[in-house]
């Protein structure tokens, strides 16, 4: 069988594919960013000494962690409106779902990181006269970010790839755009190979940059007094 590659299909659909890529980037960055911001208070709430705060938060976090992400998307998009709930556009549905998903997994990473912040560092900040909020801002937050970065890095890269699930509810991101291109011109090898290259070209630099960040001075953890 003669091999008959035709990569012109990529070139002819470059605008659509780049728009899809841009949507993928937006989905990832926005839900990763919002999810991270939400994750820190969720992690603090999971460690709260007050049961009425801790239990409901842990229940919701555990529930969200237990459900497969595709199911969460389908439930939000098809399930919720079917029982009279609000109906969101595919993009909003994907953003909300990915944000919530990222928040609960990042919260778990942060929870472990907060637990590892040395008590003596917190105590010395308290002893210096800091308020509860100042201790969170000056000690817990910077220490947690540094401790959580390697695991957060993995979550973020995973989110980038999982964002392709939004194609299930017709969000015009990269994978969905590719399937539209394919219905027009059935060149699966060329189109999917282009996607492989595009995903790798996006994910690898981010992943490498985050790794390098981990080894900078800014990420040095605490130093104990002898």
């Amino acid at each position: 069988m003669a091999i008959n590659w035709d990569f012109t299909v990529i070139w002819h659909n470059r605008d659509a594919l780049l728009l899809g890529l841009w949507m993928t980037v937006k989905l990832t960055v926005v839900s990763g960013g919002l999810g991270t911001i939400l994750a820190f208070p969720i992690a603090l709430a999971c460690r709260s000494t007050r049961v009425e705060i801790r239990w409901p938060v842990i229940a919701v976090v555990e529930l969200l962690r237990a459900i497969p992400l595709p199911l969460k998307l389908l439930w939000m998009y098809f399930g919720l409106p079917a029982m009279g709930g609000p109906e969101f556009s595919p993009i909003v549905t994907a953003l909300v779902t990915f944000t919530a998903n990222f928040a609960v997994f990042a919260a778990d990473v942060f929870r472990g990181a907060i637990r590892d912040v040395p008590r003596s560092q917190v105590d010395s900040a308290v002893a210096l006269g800091m308020s509860r909020l100042q201790v969170v801002r000056r000690v817990l937050l910077p220490e947690t970010i540094r401790r959580a970065l390697p695991a957060w890095n993995g979550l973020f890269v995973t989110l980038f790839k999982l964002s392709s699930l939004a194609s299930m509810i017709a969000v015009p991101e990269l994978l969905h755009t590719a399937s539209l291109v394919l219905t027009d011109r059935p060149k699966p090898f060329e189109v999917y190979t282009a996607l492989v290259v595009l995903y790798a070209a996006m994910v690898l630099p981010v992943s490498i940059a985050l790794r390098r960040l981990e080894s900078t001075r800014w990420f040095t953890l605490e130093v104990a007094r002898p």
């Binding site: 010395s124 800091m130 100042q134 000056r138 800014w218 953890l221």
Partner: peptide, 28 residues
């Protein structure tokens, strides 16, 4: 009343100047 503890850990990413400044700027 200030305290200086026996075992104390310092954030490795703050300079000596920043560490001394923390009390006056954040607390006071």
């Amino acid at each position: 009343v200030g305290v200086v503890f026996q075992t104390q850990r310092f954030p490795g990413y703050r300079t000596v100047a920043q560490l001394i400044a923390e009390g006056p700027s954040v607390v006071a």
